[in-house]
Amino acid sequence: MSNDLDAASDATQTTATDHSDTRDDISALPGVLGTIDLAVARLEAVLLAAGVLLMAANTIANVIGRYLLGSSIFFSEELNRILIILITFAGISYAARHGRHIRMSAIYDALPPKGRRWMMVLIAAVTAICMFALAWYSFGFIKTSAGQGRLLPSLQVPVWWTLVWVPLGFTLTGIQYVLTAYKNVVEDDIYLSTNVLEGYGRDDEREV
C-alpha cells in the first residue's frame, strides 16, 4: 500500500528505500485461494531476503577462504549466479504484487480517470500474456537444457536446476497481472497492482 509518506516529500526521513509498503502482504483473492496467495507472497519475500543474505555471506566467505584458509571457494561464483536468478525471478512477482515495476507513463498520465482504468486493464492483460508466454517458453528451455544434461563445472549439479524459478516466477507474475486486470474491471478505483491503489492527485503517492 502506498499511503506511506514518500521519502522525497518528507525530507526528514532518511531511509533510502522505505519498505513499509511491502511489510504486510494482503491477498486480492477470497478464501482458500487467498490463503495460498498469501503463502506464496510470504515465500517470495523469504526467498528474496534469504537470497540477498546468502549472496553476501557467500562472497565474504570466499574472501575469508582465500586469505585465512589459503583456498578459494570454487563454487562461489556459480552459487551467486544461482542466487541472482532466484532473486530476480522470485522478485518480479513480488514486485508485481506491490506495483513496483518501473514504468514511464507520459500518455497514461494525461488520460481521464476512466481512461486510465481501462488503460490499466489493457496494460495488465497484455503484461500477463507476455508473462505466461515467457513462462511457457522458459519451461521449454528448461526441458531442452535438462535433455542436454549440462552440468555446472564446480558444483556438478545440472544447470536446469538453477533455472526452475524462471518459469515459476513468470507464471506467478502473470497471475498477479491477471488479478490486477480483474480488479480494475470490477472496481471503480484504479489499481496499479492487486495491493496498490493508484493514489492519483497526491504527488507523494504516485509511485512507480
Binding site: S72, F74, E77, E78, P153, S154
Partner: peptide
Amino acid sequence: VKFRVMTNPLLVESYQAFGATPTPLP
C-alpha cells in the same frame, strides 16, 4: 602464488599439483 584459473576442476587440480593456489575469478 594465487593463480587465476577458469572454473574447471582439472585446471584447478593441475595448478594445485604445480604448487600454486588456484583462484577462480571472472
